[in-house]
């Protein structure tokens, strides 16, 4: 069998990711001070999710992995988290509606 040599990522890509993350961090902090109404939270979480995604894809190597299970596990765990959050919050948001 062929040796499964891992994908060696260019150092410049890592630096690029790092730069994006740093910029995004300061961006979140800055955007929070701009009045966007209810969208402040949305924007903050959107940026956080983008940051998390590139960390997962590049730094954690999910983009390059041969491992077929990584993605299902990740998606599964996030899905499970959403089950917990959405179904519990559904109770809270409909509690006084009746």
């Amino acid at each position: 069998m062929a040796d499964h040599s891992e994908h060696v990522v260019r150092a410049s890509l890592y630096w690029l990711v790092w730069a994006i993350l740093i910029v995004a961090t300061f961006l979140t902090a800055w955007v929070a001070t701009v009045d966007l109404g209810a969208f402040n939270t949305v924007v903050a979480l959107f940026i956080a999710t983008c940051k998390a995604s590139i960390v997962v894809l590049i730094f954690m190597g999910v983009k390059y992995t041969h491992e077929k299970m990584t993605r299902p596990i990740l998606v599964g765990a996030v899905f499970w988290l959403l089950i917990l959050l959405i179904l519990s919050l559904a109770d809270y948001s409909s509690r006084y509606a009746g």
Partner: peptide
């Protein structure tokens, strides 16, 4: 995630 959830709840 903790950073925006804790530090940036409402900084307007």
């Amino acid at each position: 995630y903790l950073f925006p959830l804790l530090y940036l709840i409402d900084r307007r």
